[in-house]
């Protein structure tokens, strides 16, 4: 078999003037796609397409491991810190005064033109690789095999509190009333198992900052918000590799509305195409 022989040393440099802008754009796109794949961490890899679960942080999996794969997307810019979600959670799940399953964190800025403060709701991330589940000596906390919800079997909890320290999201507290560690279960016991489709916090949220749903259902809002390219979606503490199921985005752009309404984008390039 003969190969084309190219003597690289004798080749003349063509320079960059002959490269068309289309080629350049393609090259840059390729670079961006690769960066998107390998950047991992902070931003989800966005080069992939429909139905592929790159949603869980950095790792690719062929499909979502659970069905329904419950998840929450938090559109951070919509949160106004009214704490109705926290109240609803406390009421629904009988959370004692000294504890909480979810809370809203405050980040303050100086010198920004548009905002001085940002609110970040946090809760259990129901990680696919949950450190708390690994750390528990008696399997008192476990991943629900069907829904992927990280749940508690209170009667097995010995109260060693290792899970509280293992959790990188501070999502657990010891409940004296339950004699066990307590945590968010996506309202499984109080709502979902009784046929409701929304958690207490997401149904109480007046602005739609918390959207709860099923990641395996292409018609679900959560699926639509995670599988779009226009706005970046991220998770908290991706460096821990826990594959969390709570996703964050700013969520106030028109593009999100378009996505939710099923509209396609129309781009207009320099040539008007």
């Amino acid at each position: 078999m003969n190969f084309l022989k190219i003597d690289l040393e004798r080749l003349k440099n063509e320079g960059t003037s002959t490269v068309t802008s289309k080629e350049r754009r393609n090259f840059l796109k390729l670079g961006l796609a690769i960066t998107g794949v390998y950047a991992g961490g902070k931003i989800l890899s966005l080069s992939s397409t429909f139905g592929v679960a790159h949603a869980s942080g950095t790792d690719f999996v062929e499909k979502y491991p659970y069905n329904p794969h419950y998840s929450m997307v938090i559109r951070q810019s919509l949160c106004i810190d009214c704490e109705k979600c926290v109240d609803a959670c406390n009421k629904t799940n009988h959370v004692p005064k000294y504890g909480y399953r979810t809370r809203i964190l405050t980040r303050k800025y100086q010198g920004q033109l548009d905002k001085k403060v940002e609110f970040i709701p946090v809760l259990c991330n129901h990680c696919n690789d949950a450190p708390c589940v690994r750390a528990c000596p008696t399997k008192a906390t476990y991943k629900d095999a069907v829904t992927g919800i990280v749940r508690m079997n209170s009667k097995k909890c010995i109260g060693c509190k290792t899970c509280m320290l293992a959790c990188p999201y501070d999502a657990r507290y010891f409940s004296a009333e339950r004699h066990a560690v307590d945590k968010c279960d996506f309202c499984w016991e109080e709502r979902l198992s009784k046929g409701e489709t929304q958690t207490g916090c997401s149904s109480a949220c007046p602005t739609g900052a918390r959207t709860f749903g099923n990641l395996t259902d292409p018609n679900n809002i959560v699926f639509k918000l995670v599988h779009q390219l226009e706005e970046s979606v991220w998770v908290l503490r991706p460096e821990d590799g826990t594959k969390p199921n709570i996703f964050y985005m700013k969520g106030n752009m028109l593009s999100v509305d378009n996505i939710l309404k099923g509209q396609k984008f129309i781009y207009s390039g320099p040539s008007g195409s």
Binding site: A140, C157, I158, C160, K161
Partner: peptide
């Protein structure tokens, strides 16, 4: 340990 007596049981069976 908050529930030392449970530990004796569930350390073994779970």
């Amino acid at each position: 340990i908050e529930n030392p007596f449970r530990m004796a049981i569930y350390n073994v069976i779970s």
